[in-house]
Amino acid sequence: MKIGLVQNNILWENKQFNLSASKEFFKKAKELKIDLLLFPELSFTGFTMNIEKLKEFDFSTVSYIASLCKGYCINAGIGYIQGITNDIKGKNNYTIISSNGNILCNYSKIHPFSYGEESKYYIGGEEICFAQIDEITLSPFICYDLRFPEIFQIASKKCDLITVAANWPESRKEHWITLLRSRAMENQCYIAGVNRIGIGNNINYSGNSLIIDPLGKIIGSTEECVEDILIADIDRSLVSRVRNSFKVKEDRRESLYHKLQTIDKI
């Protein structure tokens, strides 16, 4: 399966402009014969706390992208703010949509970024989601989730590919690169990290989008601060070969880990 990561400059809080601009990426993805097109976190608003203005209850963003998926016969992953009935907070969601316009999974970010006050405006999700595209099983995570390896271990029991959509600041780009490679090596699966470029709310973003194979090798990268679609092939058989030849997962002692976690601190 050929995936494409959209490393784009998201115009701050201008949902309509960014949605309209997304069509050009679909056109290019069609020419490049991409099977799955992935956009960054909060793809059409940027990393905003302006929930009241930008949250949605009608899935209008998903519906618009679903129409592009059908029109160009491409699967896609996009981020948006889902409103919650009777709650001032929203959910930071990432949705995988099939090439026929159906929702394959709708993930809510488990770990809102408290350092950036995201937890004041967004409710953390409670579930790991999975999607099947052709022979590839994938699971989407979002930005700050990358710092919590436990959920990657759980997801990778089923997954060939884990995606991380982000608005990750340039000031912490070394963390981004190191953590993405670590998650790939630890879980022996493909990791695709898609990040935005440009400036949003006075924060600089350099992109550094990466696609990493199950051995931790970077098989796709982009230039910093350049708008582009990063492309790589996902080979399910490589995941199987790596796991069968170096059986790290079979050596995990999860019942012991759980026991150790429940021991009261002395």
Results as ranks from 00 to 15, higher is better:
37 L>R: 04
101 G>I: 10
24 E>F: 11
137 T>S: 08
250 E>H: 09
124 G>W: 05
49 M>F: 12
211 I>H: 03
168 W>F: 09
112 P>C: 06
186 E>Q: 13
159 C>F: 04
181 R>S: 15
211 I>K: 00
16 Q>I: 14
156 S>A: 15
191 I>R: 02
166 A>V: 02
52 E>S: 15
156 S>T: 09
130 F>G: 03
42 L>G: 04
212 I>Y: 06
160 D>Q: 12
169 P>A: 03
14 N>M: 09
204 N>V: 12
115 Y>L: 05
71 G>Y: 08
167 N>D: 04
210 L>N: 07
178 T>K: 13
55 K>R: 15
176 W>T: 01
217 K>W: 00
87 D>G: 09
129 C>D: 08
44 F>T: 01
186 E>A: 14
179 L>K: 09
52 E>H: 12
219 I>T: 07
152 F>E: 02
157 K>Q: 13
122 Y>W: 07
181 R>C: 14
200 G>F: 06
231 I>K: 06
135 E>S: 15
158 K>E: 10
78 I>P: 05
70 K>E: 11
109 K>W: 01
197 I>P: 03
127 E>G: 01
37 L>G: 06
76 A>H: 02
107 Y>L: 00
70 K>Q: 11
194 V>P: 01
104 L>V: 13
264 D>C: 10
23 K>A: 10
235 D>Q: 13
234 I>T: 07
88 I>A: 12
161 L>Q: 03
10 I>F: 04
174 E>S: 13
99 S>V: 02
58 D>H: 11
260 L>T: 05
72 Y>N: 07
240 S>P: 00
149 P>F: 12
49 M>V: 15
172 R>M: 01
239 V>Y: 04
105 C>K: 03
178 T>H: 11
248 V>C: 00
211 I>Q: 05
259 K>L: 12
3 I>T: 05
87 D>F: 12
128 I>C: 03
56 E>M: 10
131 A>T: 06
15 K>S: 11
61 T>H: 05
25 F>R: 05
215 L>N: 10
150 E>A: 13
130 F>V: 03
211 I>P: 02
239 V>L: 03
120 K>Q: 08
15 K>L: 14
212 I>F: 08
159 C>Y: 02
158 K>R: 12
177 I>T: 10
207 G>R: 04
106 N>K: 10
237 S>L: 12
204 N>C: 08
121 Y>A: 07
221 S>R: 06
43 S>P: 06
204 N>Y: 14
220 G>I: 08
251 D>P: 00
105 C>I: 08
75 N>H: 13
25 F>T: 00
65 I>C: 08
126 E>A: 06
56 E>K: 03
60 S>A: 12
122 Y>Q: 01
30 K>W: 07
173 K>V: 13
18 N>F: 11
241 R>A: 13
40 P>L: 04
88 I>Q: 11
68 L>Q: 08
69 C>A: 12
33 K>H: 14
27 K>I: 14
120 K>A: 08
249 K>V: 01
233 D>A: 14
262 T>P: 00
220 G>S: 11
154 I>M: 07
135 E>A: 15
152 F>C: 07
123 I>V: 14
138 L>R: 00
219 I>L: 05
45 T>A: 07
107 Y>C: 05
123 I>Q: 09
19 L>M: 12
